[in-house]
Design a protein around this nucleic acid. Sequence first.
DNA 1: TAGTAATTTAGATTCATTCTAATGATCTAA
DNA 2: TTAGATCATTAGAATGAATCTAAATTACTA
Lengths: 136, 136
Amino acid sequence: MCIDSKKAKEILKNLKLRPTIQRIAITETLIKQKEIHVTAYLLKRMLAENKVFISRATIYNNLNELSNKGFLKKVLVKKGKMWFDTNLSKHHHFYDEEEETLADVAEKEIKFSKFPKIPNGKRIKSVDIVINIKKI
Amino acid sequence: MCIDSKKAKEILKNLKLRPTIQRIAITETLIKQKEIHVTAYLLKRMLAENKVFISRATIYNNLNELSNKGFLKKVLVKKGKMWFDTNLSKHHHFYDEEEETLADVAEKEIKFSKFPKIPNGKRIKSVDIVINIKKI
DNA sequence: TAGTAATTTAGATTCATTCTAATGATCTAA
DNA sequence: TTAGATCATTAGAATGAATCTAAATTACTA
Ligand SMILES: [Mn+2]
Ligand SMILES: [Mn+2]
Ligand SMILES: [Zn+2]
Ligand SMILES: [Zn+2]
């Protein structure tokens, strides 16, 4: 257990989630870096590298629970694989398919001078901007 | 066979794809409306409503081939389901998750007054903007 | 019209994700 | 503290979209 273990427990307490060994380890991993983008598989691998072995179902259960509680955001950039993001601010992404990496674009880095009219009877839920990049 | 059958054959000829019964029916369905957004499942259902029964593999083979040949664009708006789009112009989308519908946003409807700096050594491949909407 | 190359197909396979239901851990109230 | 209740974890099965396989059929070309 590293320093972050305490912070992790604190976070779980605030989210009213029982501080199980698995949840603490997952949360610790997520807060170790200031911001992180992971898939379920990536997170499982990161934990395994630290000799923490958590079942697939638990990884998914907790990523989903942490998302539902507002501690993570879901980001979709490619068919069939969900990314989870600890950057909770409204923001956008660079996605590098070749390197399978996601990077943040702060909301203030994008400004519109023209934006489409929303269809009648509808309202905006969210605006997702993905800038797909590749090596020159 | 409706009027569009001839057009469909013409299109396939230009794309250098053999005009099989299945391909003609698929292409006909896609050009019946000026613009169309379909998933593989939706297309299969549309064909079945017209008493044309085509196997799943063939639906996918042809949607992918038509995409590779540049007759369709792929659009990703939700985890795990690919949409195919006959609007070939560069454009963006409204996505209504409640109604599972995709609608076009012309490129000229969106203008940026500020856009992020692309990371060194990288270039933009594409910019995907999805405006998620829901009923008021 | 024969030979070959492309196409279609049912069913198997893959991959990410969710579900199931049995086991184990944590919490709470007495 | 502990009993009981609730919640969490897990292996493995199930799901759903998409792809693969390999055998049968169809379309093209000489
Ligand atoms: Mn630690
Ligand atoms: Mn017809
Ligand atoms: Zn992010
Ligand atoms: Zn479109």
